[in-house]
Design a protein around this nucleic acid. Structure first.
Ligand code: FES
Ligand code: FES
Lengths: 164, 164
DNA sequence: CTTAATCCTACCAATGCGGTAGGAGAAACC
DNA sequence: GGTTTCTCCTACCGCATTGGTAGGATTAAG
């Protein structure tokens, strides 16, 4: 259960844009150098964000990208959805009907698989966690920088140990 | 963000075991045929469950597997952890210190990456959803599905969720 | 007209995943 | 004892995806 680096890099890109308070567009090159990420790969990632109208672009010299909306109104579920294409805990969840209903591919004679119940809960937990996190929050967090991640950070986190 | 089929098959295997109320061990072959899953693959999966003491085995003819604990006490976070090895929304989360603290691999001069805050929340949401779901719950759910199915075949259809 | 930037698309190596194959022990039955 | 039926173990393999690169076309500032 691991998001791809598209989500990681994309979110980081947005945070980087959010840190620039002014309206001047920021070039990808600057972001790539700032975050130590491959420029060519970032180009493909930012295209996803633009397609979702989360980012505006200005072409040509002195061009770049800027946020299309107020950082406080940008929730992470939109962002991750735009970057990853779907927020699904199991592969059968990627194909959804128009209403967002999951169509269970493991159906035998009208009997839904027992796991559907579980994955729906997990999906709900993820999207809820994503939805209640705004871009502005992440920007503020990154501004705090070397302040130790105190109870505020770890409060809602319940880390698990890997036994293996 | 997708779990592998190890989680899917493993949970389904446990549910199948949970449906057997008696103490007689169930062979993997029976489960594989019942669920339409490859037997050889299930063997490797059930090994993970046994290593986590979620399942007991009896070798030899008429042998098989049975639940090692009461289904009500088995929470899905243990199960998924045993099957997947870790519950991590990002690859940097798989390596943890002894205390379960995440060691951030993208650290620039003491500054943690802005995304850590987000992924910690997501991880928390997932583990919370997993922890509050017990195996007994899933067994009950799958039993309800059967009732719905048999009722459907008898002509008195009771719609659990109407199809779109 | 040069330069700096966004765009677009094809390509590529590596990794992991889902699955297979072939056995070696262990217990029940005849 | 031999056969059958299981659990166990480990190596192998095709395939899809991921993360990343290459190369160029387009647009606009200076
Ligand atoms: S096939 Fe995954 S929910 Fe039914
Ligand atoms: S590198 Fe992922 S949390 Fe910092």
């Amino acid at each position: 259960m691991i998001f791809t680096t598209k989500a990681e890099y994309g979110v980081r890109l947005l945070v980087e844009l959010g840190r620039q308070a002014n309206d001047a567009p920021v070039s990808l090159k600057a972001i790539a150098e700032n975050e130590g990420l491959p420029l060519a790969y970032l180009e493909r990632i930012v295209a996803l964000l633009k397609r979702a109208d989360l980012v505006e672009s200005t072409r040509g010299a002195h061009g770049g990208y800027r946020l299309a909306r107020d950082p406080e109104s940008v929730t992470m579920d939109e962002v991750v959805l735009a970057l990853e294409g779907s927020v699904a805990p199991m592969s059968c969840f990627v194909d959804e009907t128009d209403d967002g209903r999951v169509l269970c591919s493991h159906v035998d004679d009208g009997e839904a698989c027992a796991t559907k119940f579980l994955w729906l809960r997990v999906q709900g937990g993820v999207t809820e966690a994503l939805r209640r996190t705004t871009l502005a929050e992440l920007v503020a967090f990154s501004a705090k920088q070397d302040v130790a991640q105190s109870a505020e950070t770890l409060g809602s986190a319940l880390p698990l140990h890997s036994a293996a």
